[in-house]
Amino acid sequence: MSTVVDPVLRVRDLTIRTRSVELLRGVDLTIGRGERVGLIGESGSGKSITSLAIMGLLPDNVQATGSVRLGERELLGTPERELARVRGRDVAMVFQEPMTALNPTMRIGDQVAEAMLIHHTQPSRAAAADRAIELLEAVRLPDPKALVRAYPHQLSGGQRQRVVLAIALANDPALLICDEPTTALDVTVQQLVLDLLVRGVEERDAAMLFITHDLAVVANVCEQVAVMYGGRIVEAGPVNEVFRRPRHRYTQGLLAASDLAVDPHSGQLRAIAGSVPAAGRFPEGCVFRSRCWKATDQCRAEPPWTGAPHGPGYACWHPAQSEVIT
């Protein structure tokens, strides 16, 4: 998010719509080499569609405009044949649901080796098979030599997610996208998987886009954060800054809701009033105004981005003062 000179990923004004509904509007994201950026927001805020757009895996019934650059290469509008060469080699992805992310009828070793064979990053099948064992060892799976012959159903969810991570890291991608990689896992293995993720990208000096609704995980893993609501980025900046001094009212609400302390007045957990509207049902102007406790008539107009262009800042007419929240 900071003003990176030579970014790995540079998303500008990314807008995605179906024939009738706008899913994403004017999204900017910049990630530098070795930088880890969190993308947070409630379900339905557009996080996953953003990641699919970067992977070039958008369903064919949506239209994307704007720019998604990976290094020097523009990905939007690139034909599938060329995109496939980038995917899995320069940009890789770890998905949310490890239980279904692997092919149930293919051996683990073959699934890891395939990632390298597709892009010819290993000279032979044997070399790819050997490298697969090393990769499984690197994600601390027990007895990788035997594991390559196992099928996914013989592994636990945490183990499967580590296999998915091994596949994603197989070709040393410049950018790793993680879409809620620990949400479906037991709390006990979440930290292990997070540690492996961070170590994996650090060893490769890779950039990471980490999508989650878990603010604690972002604070744990990322240096920069972008907050998404209604298909827009409403606030962005260093994690320290944004989490300590949220400016956008939505960020403020999210932080309050993630605080498990009980509200002294109501005796209940804090939550943001209302729920996320369905895609296309967000209000005009500020997308958050239908749930915002500070909304005024001014919010009918779209709030401008306050802060560095494409960098840290927020889009709110009535930002929280920069008082420190404790």
Binding site: R87, M93, E97, L102, P104, A115
Partner: peptide, 26 residues
């Protein structure tokens, strides 16, 4: 619609390849 087919695409397989290698046996 299976997730593993999306994983196959994310690895760098084109749609037809992904279906052929990962879909048909299933």
């Amino acid at each position: 619609r299976e997730d593993y087919l999306r994983t196959a695409r994310a690895k760098g397989l084109r749609p037809a390849q992904a279906l052929w290698r990962h879909g048909l046996r299933n």
